[in-house]
């Protein structure tokens, strides 16, 4: 993959953000970069931003590695990816320039990866950082590998079906450890990937399928975003009313009887004394 030609990319814009992904009063966005293109020695790359060639913004990133998250002002950026050590002023980038618009409050992952046919490309994903209900966890799977359409199984049940490059599927499920499998869509085998995933409560786990099935370097990279959890809605701990701090029922009855007795005897006594 070192021989990647220059690849022209259409503008990848972050549009139609989910409402929960936007922090209303922030003027910054959060960016993570994933290297998902296999190659010799992990295909190390230098990543430059906005044509500033004085030094790589991210030097020496290799296959399966994440850089970030970094907080950047919301703006338009141009990203160029070069083979590590290449002179950006004298050579064409291996990938890019890639125009990326980062809206305020967005949490995004920029990924260099293979398309279904095995050519280098790039995608920008907006990460859902909306609140996760108490007791649940968020699992997202992004198909960015040179591989056919797949199903994702959780504990042998279909969780996401017919997922194809470069698409994603996501869902909130009860926090637990799941046995995850990736199989050709509609099939149960061959299992092209299998792993036990411990998915913590209140955490978003994003699994990227990367590499090439045909070339034998298909694998996954995992990004986690913590701190999205919520508190339960209450604590229900009584149904009998034995510990109520209202007026206790026995005392209330005794009090009522005493009031009746008081009124009755008082009235009778006053009538007799007036006779």
């Amino acid at each position: 993959m070192r021989t990647l030609g220059r690849i022209f990319l259409v503008a990848v814009m972050l549009l139609a953000l989910p409402a929960g992904a936007v922090l209303a009063q922030s003027t910054d966005g959060t960016v993570t970069v994933l290297h998902g293109i296999p190659g010799d020695g992990g295909f190390p790359v230098d990543i430059y931003v906005n044509g500033d060639y004085t030094a790589p913004f991210i030097p020496g990133l290799t296959f399966t590695e994440f850089a970030g998250p970094v907080t950047l002002p919301a703006a338009d950026y141009s990203i160029e990816i070069y083979a590590a050590g290449a002179d950006p002023a004298a050579t064409d980038p291996a990938l890019g320039p890639l125009p990326v618009t980062l809206p305020a409050g967005a949490n995004a992952t920029i990924e260099a990866h293979l398309d279904e046919a095995g050519a280098a490309t790039a995608s920008v994903f907006v990460n859902d950082i909306s609140e996760i209900a108490a007791g649940e966890t968020r699992l997202t799977v992004r198909h960015t590998a040179s591989a056919p359409t797949v199903d994702v199984l959780a504990n042998d049940g279909v969780l996401f079906s017919a997922l194809s490059n470069p698409n994603q599927a996501s869902g909130d499920v009860p926090a637990a450890t799941y046995t995850a499998k990736v199989v050709p869509t509609g099939e149960t085998e061959p299992v092209v990937f299998e792993a036990d995933l411990a998915l913590p409560e209140g955490t978003s786990t994003i699994v990227y399928a990367i590499g090439s099935l045909a070339d034998g370097n298909f694998t996954v990279a995992v990004q986690t975003i913590t701190g999205l959890g919520a508190a339960p809605g209450g604590v229900p701990t009584g149904t009998a009313g034995l510990a109520t701090d209202g007026f206790p029922i026995a005392l209330a009855i005794a009090g009522a009887l005493a009031l009746v007795g008081l009124a009755g005897s008082g009235v009778a006594l006053s009538r007799r004394s007036s006779n």
């Binding site: 790589p56 913004f57 991210i58 030097p59 399966t64 590695e65 450890t177 990227y208 995992v222």
Partner: peptide
């Protein structure tokens, strides 16, 4: 700076 301050992490599956 001699290099950026962007943290780099492996994308390996977290251990159980």
């Amino acid at each position: 700076d001699g290099g950026p301050s962007v943290p780099v992490s492996t994308g390996l599956l977290p251990d159980l």
